[in-house]
């Protein structure tokens, strides 16, 4: 059983966000790039599944649509335990474009599971996973928090309003995972880091695709008003403010 984990390369979560070129582009100066946290959970759990030999997982590939600058992120994926990395050589221009690239690769290979994190830390699109499923015409399960194998059949746990549903699937399936899918991201070990340089990182040309959307401009939120401190011995004041000033009660 082969798993494809789709990786976004995003700024570290503590990055101070700035824009450049008249607010049209994210300013990458001094930014530390990381594996998108949800994608890292997706990969970590996939590696856990592969390491447990009672599961049928045999190979994990990671894929990223990005320029050569994303390769350190892909090599970190290899260090964490992916067997192989694919980079589609293009800026990820919009969600549909990115989905076309990934779907095209999936069509050429065969994967039982194509795994995405629920959103990317930069554009917060939550789109590519569902789009890939639709292009391929396969089922997708979203907000997935667990997966269990019983022989070759998998049961997927998804969050629904107020609880959980358990889904069984056959054939290629897209799963979009959230927190809980892995407890925490794996830290690569020395052996993994050493082996990362020997594992294949293949670069493929992008295919043509139309763009359905484009970003015109970025803006930062308005600065927030200063906090109003309340005397801990006069909490009625807070209640009054919440009710009359903020009107949230």
């Amino acid at each position: 059983m082969k798993i494809l984990v789709c990786i976004s390369n995003v700024p570290d979560t503590t990055t101070k966000i700035k824009f450049t070129d008249k607010q049209t582009r994210f300013d990458p100066t001094g930014v530390q790039w990381i594996i998108n946290p949800w994608d890292e959970l997706a990969l970590s759990r996939s590696v856990d599944l592969k390491e447990d030999s009672s599961n049928p997982v045999s190979e994990i590939t990671v894929i990223n649509v990005g320029t050569s600058e994303t390769e350190p992120t892909l090599r970190k994926c290899l260090a964490i335990g992916a067997d192989k990395a694919i980079r589609i050589d293009s800026e990820p221009k919009d969600a549909f474009f990115t989905a076309q690239q990934i779907a095209n690769y999936v069509q050429k290979e065969s994967f039982e599971f194509v795994v995405f994190g629920i959103e990317s830390g930069d554009y917060n699109g939550s789109s590519v996973g569902g789009m890939v499923a639709e292009i391929l015409g396969v089922p997708s399960v979203s907000s997935v928090s667990d997966i269990k194998f019983n022989g070759s059949s998998a049961t997927i746990e998804r969050d629904v309003d107020g609880g959980k549903e358990y889904m069984q699937v056959q054939g290629t399936t897209v799963i979009v995972v959230q927190k809980g899918f892995a407890k925490e991201p794996r830290i690569p070990n020395m052996r993994g880091i050493m082996m990362a340089r020997q594992k294949p990182l293949e670069v493929l040309a992008a295919i043509d695709s139309e763009l359905l959307t484009e970003i015109i401009e970025f803006n930062l939120p308005e600065p927030k008003a200063k906090v109003k401190m309340i005397d801990p011995d006069n909490l009625q004041e807070l209640v009054a403010l919440l009710s009359k000033e903020a009107k949230v009660l």
Partner: peptide, 13 residues
Amino acid sequence: EEQQMIRQAARDY
């Protein structure tokens, strides 16, 4: 890159 990865792994832990 490896040196950076090792530093990050140690830092994460």
